[in-house]
């Protein structure tokens, strides 16, 4: 269970999150929608522990662990995964090397044995197949020269390999073609289960037809102003944020 209470945060002295309250029980998928600049990515960075995103109040716990108190890599080992809105390029670092280093770092942190090259390759091939990714992507530099959609798919591959308990997907749907949207959604849905929860940040109701959320939240000016079931996304699509906010 992810529990966020009264969370406030600022970036370069500017308050962005102004008291976020949110609970995502284990096994549930929640969507966050909101206008550009409302603080959705900021929330994801704060939860993942990015430098420069300063928590000024409130709390966030995941399965009882105070995640704001630990290092980003410890949060990752605790099961938190962030699919970046803008995946980062790592020139010269092979995708396979990166994936294996990350996977083994997390396994080590959890006291599990590391995967050798063969075990890793077998797993990676299997997961890539499920995501219809060509195998040569393993050899290429992390996200280097990847198309927008390939980068997003690569994020989902990492998620599928790392098997997080909590995934935050920041606009993973933008830039995906129709087929890719379906493949990626299937990838997320395949992970659903009692021990997996997700926060899906999106601008489009369309994604939520594939990944049907348990709850939808509307974030405006760094606050959750409304929450509801999947139908809330449809209401937003039809009426826009102003009406929804006014109705709150």
């Amino acid at each position: 269970m992810l529990r966020i209470e009264g969370l406030t945060a600022e970036v370069e002295g500017k308050p962005i999150l102004n008291g976020v309250d949110l609970e995502v029980p284990s096994g549930e998928v929640h969507a966050i929608m909101g206008p550009n600049g409302s603080g959705k990515s900021t929330l994801s960075y704060v939860l993942a522990g990015r430098e420069g995103y300063v928590v000024t109040g409130g709390s966030a716990t995941f399965n009882g662990v105070d995640i704001l108190a630990i290092e980003p890599e410890e949060r990752a080992a605790a099961g938190l995964f962030l699919a970046f809105q803008y995946p980062v390029e790592l020139p010269g670092v092979g995708n396979a090397t990166f994936l294996r280093t990350a996977l083994n770092a997390q396994r080590r942190a959890k006291g599990e044995s590391e995967l050798d090259a063969m075990q890793f390759l077998k797993l990676a091939r299997e997961r890539m197949k499920a995501l219809s990714m060509p195998e040569d992507m393993l050899k290429r530099g992390v996200n280097v020269g990847f198309s927008g959609g390939e980068k997003k798919r690569n994020e989902i591959l990492q998620m599928a390999m790392l098997k997080p308990a909590l995934a935050i997907l920041d606009e993973t749907d933008s830039g995906l073609d129709i087929d890719a949207l379906k493949i990626v959604s299937d990838g997320v849905n395949a992970m659903r289960g009692p021990d997996f929860s997700a926060l899906v940040i999106t601008h489009y109701q369309r994604l939520l037809d594939y990944i049907v959320p348990d709850r939808v939240h509307v974030l405006i000016s760094g606050r959750i102003v409304r929450s509801g079931g999947p139908e809330l996304a449809q209401e937003l699509e039809a009426q826009g944020y102003a009406a929804v906010q006014a109705a709150a």
Binding site: A48, G49, R50, E51, E71, P72, E73, R75, A76, A77, F81, L82, F84, P87, V88, E89, L90, F98, T101, A102, L103, A105, Q106, A109, Q158, L162
Partner: peptide, 11 residues
């Protein structure tokens, strides 16, 4: 780049 790696579990 550093944050991306650390988010994936690297120190």
């Amino acid at each position: 780049q550093l944050f991306y790696c650390r988010q994936r579990g690297l120190t």
